[in-house]
C-alpha cells in the first residue's frame, strides 16, 4: 500500500467506526498493510509499516494515541518476524496476534466502564471536559443502572466537541449543562468530582489531553475535588514531558498547522496540554484502578 492508500483507508475506517479510538484505527490500518503486502521480504514489510505510520501521523487526527498504539504494535506484533523462517508463516502469526490484540483493545472500554461506574454515586454532580468516548459510555452505563446524577460539560474550544457530548448525554436522558471553558472555576465548587478521558498517558503518570484539561485539574486540586482519568492502557506512552513546553510539537499542533507555520509555533493554538501527575487522583484503566505513580511501573513492565 502506498501513502495515499493508507491515508484513505485510515480516514474511511475512522468515518465508519465512530466508536473507535484513533489509536485502535491506526493499529487496524497497520494490520491492513501487513495483509495487503505483496513482496516476500520481512525487511520490505518493516519499511512499509514505517511508511504507513508516517502517513497516519501526518493525517489531521491527534497524534498522541496514534503514536502509542503504533509503538505497541511495532514492538509486540511485528516481533514475530524474528521467530519464524518462512515469510508466509511469519505474516500469518503477525495477523493472528494482531487480531487477538485488537479484540483485547475493544474489550478495554467495557472493563473501564465497569470500574468507573462504581464511583458515580446517586445524586452526584460530575464535571467533564470535551468529548471522551469512554467517559460517555461510563455515564450512560451508570444511568442505565438507575443512578441519578448531573453532568457539566465544557464547550471545549476550538472544535466545540462539548456540544456533541452534551447532545449525546441528553439523548439518553442524563441531565446535562453546557458551560463555557472559562467557567470551569465557577462550577467547580458545585461539583463532586471531575472525570475526563485522555489522549495519552505519559511515563510520569500525567496525561496528555484536550487543551483545558490542565486548567480543570489545577482548579480541581485547589478546590480539593477528586480528578479522575478514564483511559485505555494502550494509550500509555514512553514520554516524559517536564512541562508544557517540553511536549513534542507534533502532539500539540495538527499536521496541517505545522506545515503552514513551521518556524513559529507560538501563534498556533495548542490542541492538547499536559497535566502533571500531582493533579491526578486516580486513573481508571483496563489494568485496574491505578495511582499516577503506578503508570511508570506498568510501562517498565511492558517495555523493559
Amino acid at each position: 500500500m502506498d501513502k495515499q492508500e493508507v491515508k484513505a483507508f485510515f480516514d474511511k475506517t475512522i468515518a465508519e467506526n465512530e466508536d473507535l479510538s484513533v489509536g485502535v484505527v491506526a493499529i487496524m490500518t497497520l494490520m491492513k498493510i501487513i495483509e495487503k503486502y505483496q513482496d516476500n521480504t520481512v525487511q520490505g514489510l518493516d519499511e512499509n509499516l514505517k511508511l504507513g505510520i508516517l502517513a497516519i501521523k501526518t493525517s489531521d487526527y491527534p497524534v498522541t494515541a496514534i503514536n502509542s498504539g503504533c509503538e505497541l504494535f511495532m514492538r509486540f506484533i511485528t516481533l514475530a518476524k524474528l521467530d519464524y523462517n518462512s515469510f508466509e508463516q511469519c505474516r500469518n502469526v503477525m495477523l493472528e496476534r494482531g487480531n487477538i490484540f485488537l479484540n483485547r483493545l475493544k474489550q478495554c472500554r467495557a472493563k473501564i466502564v465497569k470500574l468507573a461506574t462504581k464511583f458515580i454515586a446517586d445524586g452526584s454532580k460530575v464535571l467533564t471536559h470535551s468529548r471522551s468516548r469512554v467517559v460517555l459510555q461510563t455515564l450512560i452505563e451508570a444511568s442505565r443502572q438507575g443512578k441519578q446524577f448531573e453532568i457539566y460539560v465544557t464547550k471545549s474550544a476550538p472544535d466545540n466537541s462539548g456540544d456533541v457530548m452534551c447532545k449525546n448525554l441528553t439523548s439518553v436522558g442524563i441531565p446535562c449543562t453546557l458551560i463555557l471553558d472559562s467557567a470551569i472555576g465557577y462550577v467547580m465548587e458545585q461539583v463532586d468530582f471531575v472525570m475526563v478521558g485522555a489522549e495519552g498517558v505519559v511515563e510520569s503518570g500525567g496525561i496528555v489531553n484536550k487543551v483545558g484539561s490542565y486548567t480543570m485539574a489545577v482548579c480541581a486540586k485547589e478546590m480539593k475535588k477528586p480528578f479522575y482519568v478514564l483511559t485505555e492502557s494502550f494509550k500509555f506512552s514512553r514520554l516524559f514531558p517536564l512541562n508544557q513546553g517540553d511536549l513534542p510539537p507534533e502532539y500539540k499542533y495538527s499536521a496541517s498547522a505545522r506545515q503552514l507555520d513551521e518556524r513559529d509555533f507560538k501563534k498556533i493554538h495548542p490542541l492538547v496540554d499536559y497535566t502533571p501527575p500531582f493533579y491526578i487522583t486516580l486513573l481508571f484503566t483496563d489494568l485496574g484502578i491505578l495511582t499516577p505513580s503506578a503508570v511508570s511501573d506498568e510501562l517498565i513492565k511492558l517495555y523493559l
Binding site: 511515563e203 510520569s204 516524559f240 517536564l242 505513580s293 511508570s296 517498565i300 513492565k301 523493559l304
Partner: peptide, 18 residues
C-alpha cells in the same frame, strides 16, 4: 520531577520496579 537513568526517564517512585 524525574530521575534520568540509562533505562528511561522515570518518576522517583519507580525505583523499586527498577
Amino acid at each position: 520531577t524525574a530521575v534520568v537513568t540509562e533505562l528511561a526517564i522515570l518518576p522517583c517512585t519507580s525505583a523499586p520496579v527498577v
